[in-house]
Design a protein around this nucleic acid. Structure first.
Lengths: 102, 102
DNA sequence: TCAGTATATGTCATATTCGACATAGACGCG
DNA sequence: CGCGTCTATGTCGAATATGACATATACTGA
């Protein structure tokens, strides 16, 4: 997935189909982007729910505050690996992860 | 996650706890590794179920046969992004993905 | 106002992951 | 046997993601 492509997703508000068409993403690419965005939002929710700061979460997962901020703002340079690591580091379980995915 | 760490997971057969202790993984790191391995196995299952060769799946997802082979053999150089892309490219739905995760 | 805290954004050198390719082994079929 | 197909493994240069750091903004409360 091209960084320049998903970058533009941040100028959001569009419907998924429209964005996909505009960016020329395949169905699966689009699905993955949506999945990541959903999970990114879930990280913020899980973090704030436990009263953690971005810095605190970053420490838990061995990363840095700026990375956590990028996760939560939907930066396209963030891997699914890192998003899932962040989600689990909030204390969320694998079962909760499955619920977000499904 | 270090490649050298998960590499050794391939000499498998151990219980999760033991491997984790041996490799010095945190709980979350270990959970992520297990998650990836689960999903990697699911890719093979989904692919063969549809009678696709590794080459055919690779074409569908714009990758190469060797990458698909690495996915299915649990190679640690494979990102979660790529695993999920492969899984969806088999024709599996996001819902099915959630079921594997949960 | 000022200090402290939280979050956003940009950059950098380094590390990781990528697709592609070569090649080897296994298997079945003629 | 020889040939085609499928899968495994290793390696490459290129592409991408990483943590760290600097810095900007905003919002507290003293």
């Amino acid at each position: 997935m091209k960084a320049t492509k998903t970058k533009r997703l941040k100028a959001a508000g569009w419907k998924a189909g429209t964005v996909q068409q505009f960016l020329g993403l395949s169905d699966d690419e689009a699905a993955l982007v949506e999945l990541k965005l959903t999970l990114m939002a879930a990280v913020r929710q899980a973090r704030t729910k436990r009263g953690l700061s971005q810095t605190a979460l970053a420490q838990r997962m061995g990363s840095s505050q700026s990375r956590v901020a990028k996760i939560e703002t939907g930066d396209p340079s963030i891997s699914l690996d890192l998003i899932v690591r962040a989600f689990l580091a909030t204390g969320a379980t694998r079962r909760e992860l499955g619920r977000v995915f499904g």
